[in-house]
Simulated scan of single mutants.
Amino acid sequence: MEKFSENLLFSGRWEHGKECSRTSAPAAMVEFNASAKLLEFELEGEARFRLDEDGKQIAVIETGARNVYKVKTAGGAHRYRLIKISESNPGGISLYKVSTDKAGSFAPPPKHTNRRIEFIGDSFTVGYGVDGKLGDPDSFVFKATNASKSYAFLLADGFKADFQVNAFSGRGLVRNYDNIVPEWTISRLYEYTVPGLAESDLAGGITDTDLRYDFDSFHPQVIVLFIGINDFQGNPPYANKDDYKKAYVKLLEKLRSAHPGVRFLLVSTKVWPNDDLTPTVKSIYESQLAAGKKDLEFIEVRTDNVALHGHPDEHSQAELARTLRPVVGKLGRWLSR
């Protein structure tokens, strides 16, 4: 990276190269402190970003071909955050530079907190379609998806925690919705730093090994797993329950090994037509307890799926965050005293 990266705090999974930083994660974020009347972002890749000034949205930037995107600010010293609110699945974006106007300057960057949380999930966790309505056309997906309104971002932001959102719309643990791209399930995508680029073969000469995620780069204290909706929904055949359970337990063990002392929240919800997800996840939870595991909790949630393509709307995402907050706070020992 160029020197400008020294002024930036990155959240989410990013791959940092010599010329740019790349990501495909929803809610991937860059924070910085600056005094400027104008900010410039050199970006490449199809995405939508929300720019906040002191926590309040001041712009939405829609990107495509490599370009410098300029945003006027209030002037004076402020804390900014650039949040990737769209999904790249497959695909990704490249950030080449963040700069101020000639009279502007950067201050030392924000610092990491002592709270770290990770979310692994699907479209519900992405914030897919949250700004849309049930009957909106399919073409509205890009503008209706907003990861900054997902329960995951709201929870992390509320706890002022460092975070990762590793979520993929339409993907399941062992079987994707309607069996789309069956070779690219969550189980496989999760292994990559920039999974959207790995899947789309847009890595530009970087080897598969180079793209693999370094699990030592971020050690969450709490991991929220909300996975399986797509394994058991859509057109059949659905996932084999035993295969799903084996993959789920394998993921738990992998995460325990990578992050000693981590604690888990297993989340489930009603799915159609058979409502197979909740009893399956609950049986995993009960088996873990019976095996002496004391590092996890289970919760079933209900949402009003009135947003695009039957997904939670803004109100329902916020309510979901409120529902999960006390359980996550207990697991992370972050409850207010």
Score class of each variant (00 low, 15 high):
G196C: 00
H78M: 04
A65V: 12
T113M: 03
S105N: 01
K293D: 06
F106G: 02
A103M: 00
S94W: 01
R188E: 11
Y244W: 02
P110T: 08
A198D: 07
S5M: 13
R337Y: 14
P220W: 09
L335W: 05
W184Y: 15
N235H: 09
E6L: 09
F168K: 03
K3I: 03
S35W: 00
Q221W: 01
Y248A: 12
K294R: 15
N230L: 10
S21L: 04
G17E: 08
N179A: 14
I284A: 11
N166I: 15
E44Y: 07
S35A: 04
L265E: 04
L255I: 09
R322E: 10
A65H: 12
S21K: 02
P26K: 08
G129T: 04
E6D: 12
K241E: 10
R116I: 11
E191Q: 08
E2H: 13
L255Q: 14
A307S: 13
K282H: 08
I227K: 06
R188G: 09
K282S: 04
D162C: 10
S86D: 13
W184I: 14
P108I: 07
E191K: 07
D216W: 02
K37P: 00
S35P: 00
T125K: 11
V328E: 03
P110D: 01
E286Q: 14
I284V: 15
I299K: 11
E31P: 00
L8S: 08
V327S: 03
R263V: 07
N7D: 03
E118H: 12
